[in-house]
């Protein structure tokens, strides 16, 4: 099997590794690098569980080949907290019940952060649309949207 060397930044740390061209980014993260925070649920780009950021924007990591992110910056849920302090989104999800089984949560948090980076004061409708690519089977999304709006408020206060 042919393998290719790739080099990329993962949560601020440089990774150099070899992968088979057919390896998807989610497989690289979970199976080769042991970064299992990112979940793999549908393998068809439909559920958003594997959402990570690439080059500052979110993607479904099951729908991107690992070789395609050579030279880019990748962010996962493991990089969301800064040191011991949880990200305001993580705090808000805990305080507002934005998670239950937790399987969609890493992807949901990544989508929410992508939204708040682009739009620090989203409306409820904008928050709903921003997570339309993330399926949650537990919460009915109500408390996820609440959590995102609460985090946005906290983050605005901080600034």
């Amino acid at each position: 099997m042919n393998r290719m060397m790739i080099s990329f930044m993962l949560n601020g740390r440089r990774i150099e590794t070899s992968v088979a061209p057919k390896t998807t980014l989610v497989e690289l993260l979970r199976e080769h690098l042991g970064m299992t925070g990112t979940k793999h649920a549908c393998d068809s780009g439909a559920c958003g569980s594997c959402t990570v950021s690439v080059g500052g924007r979110t993607v479904n990591s099951c729908s991107v080949l690992a070789v395609q992110i050579d030279g880019m910056e990748v962010g996962t849920v493991e990089g969301l907290a800064e040191g011991p302090d949880l990200h305001p989104l993580q705090e808000a999800f805990l305080d507002h019940g934005g998670l239950q089984c937790g399987f969609c949560t890493p992807g949901m948090l990544m989508s929410a952060r992508d939204l708040l980076r682009r739009n620090p004061s989203p409306s409820a409708q904008e928050a709903r649309e921003a997570i339309a690519g993330n399926i949650c089977r537990c919460t009915g999304y109500v408390k996820i949207v609440e959590s995102i709006l609460a985090a946005a408020g906290k983050m605005r206060e901080k600034k």
Partner: peptide, 10 residues
């Protein structure tokens, strides 16, 4: 409203 944010980004 094309697909989802993740798809539009890549």
């Amino acid at each position: 409203h094309l697909a989802t944010v993740q798809v539009r980004n890549w």
